Structure formats: structure tokens, C-alpha cells
Simulated scan of single mutants.
Amino acid sequence: MEFVDNVKICEPLGCSDHNQIHFIIKVKGERNRKIRYRKHFHKERYKDMREYLAKIDWNNTLKNKTATECWNILKSEIDCVVDKFVPLKKQGKRSKKKHLSKEAIRKIKYKQMVWKRYRHIGSEEDYSIYKEALNQATAEIRNSKRSYEQKLLLI
């Protein structure tokens, strides 16, 4: 077996006339970063929404309709109003906290896992384990933040 420019060439075994060639291909792809938007309900124009919905003649619109049809009409109108009067907001990306060390992140994940176990089972023993994990994670976060701030002071 020999390697030629990241290509592994295997010799035939025994009397077999089959040869094999193995390629090692390294590909670095581009990340598709598309901007995501979400509804920004804090900037919603409630007054305009009320006026728009008040202009609709609900008696004639929902007359002689079944409950399912009425619900579908109401839902589509509300969706239309929300699309019209609620502005979109660029969804920010969550950034990693720079002051957290790997050990702090590991302890935070452990604390979260123990909390889920406690919430599922609900025993006193699990709660005491969670409290210990919480104290350790808090102490590690505090130490990690302190060391990060000291490194910034030295720069």
C-alpha cells in the first residue's frame, strides 16, 4: 500500500486482479448565512389594527357559515392584519460569551442536565445534586469572568 498525493493505492490481495484506489478529498464549503426576520410585536400598531378590523362587516362575512369556516375566515383576517401592521425585525445571532472558559461551559451544561433530571423525577436527592451543580457553575463563571477581566487589564 502506498500513498501518492493523498491517494491510497492498495495492492491486489493473493491471486485477485481487483485493485482499489481510495481518495481523500478535503472540501471546505461556504456557510449559507441568510438573514432571518421575525415579527417585532413591541412596535406593533394596535390602533391601526383595531381600525382595520372594525371596518370589516363581520355579520355579513360570517353569515350562514359553519364554525370551521368562521374560524378559518377569522384566522386569515388576523394573519393578514399581523402581516400588515407588525414590522419585521432582523433576528440577531447569539454570540458566545467571551469570558466563559471551557470548564465553565461544561459545568453549565451539567447543571442544565441535572435540572432536567430533577424536574422529571422531582426527588430531594436530585435537588441537592442540582444545588451543588448550580453552586459549582456559579463559582466557575465568576472565576472565569474574573480571569478574563484580568487578561484584558494586562493587554
Rank of each mutant, 00 (worst) to 15 (best):
P12W: 05
K55V: 01
T61E: 07
E2M: 11
Q20N: 14
C70E: 09
D5H: 01
L153H: 08
L74S: 10
G14P: 06
R50C: 11
R142C: 07
W115S: 12
R117Y: 02
H99N: 10
K89L: 14
R146P: 01
I105Y: 00
E124T: 12
D48Y: 00
L154I: 13
D57F: 04
K111D: 00
K34Q: 14
R45V: 01
P12C: 07
N60P: 04
V4K: 14
Q136L: 08
V82Y: 06
N59L: 03
R94N: 13
E2P: 10
T138F: 00
E140C: 12
R146V: 04
R106A: 15
K47Y: 05
K102E: 10
E132F: 00
G122W: 00
K34S: 14
F41L: 08
K93Y: 09
D48V: 08
W71A: 15
E30M: 10
K47A: 15
Q136T: 03
A54W: 05
G122Y: 01
C70S: 11
L62S: 03
R38F: 11
N135F: 02
F3D: 02
E149R: 15
F3T: 07
C15Y: 14
K34F: 12
F41G: 03
L74R: 10
I129P: 03
D79G: 04
R117A: 13
L13P: 06
E11W: 12
R106T: 11
E30I: 01
F41W: 01
I155G: 15
I56E: 04
K93L: 13
E77C: 10
L74P: 00
I108Q: 02
V86A: 00
A137P: 05
E125G: 12
D17K: 15
K89T: 07
H40C: 15
K8T: 06
Y130D: 01
K90T: 11
I121E: 09
T66L: 09
T61R: 06
Y148I: 07
K93N: 10
F23S: 08
R36P: 03
G29L: 14
D83L: 08
K39I: 08
R106Y: 08
K109G: 05
D79W: 02
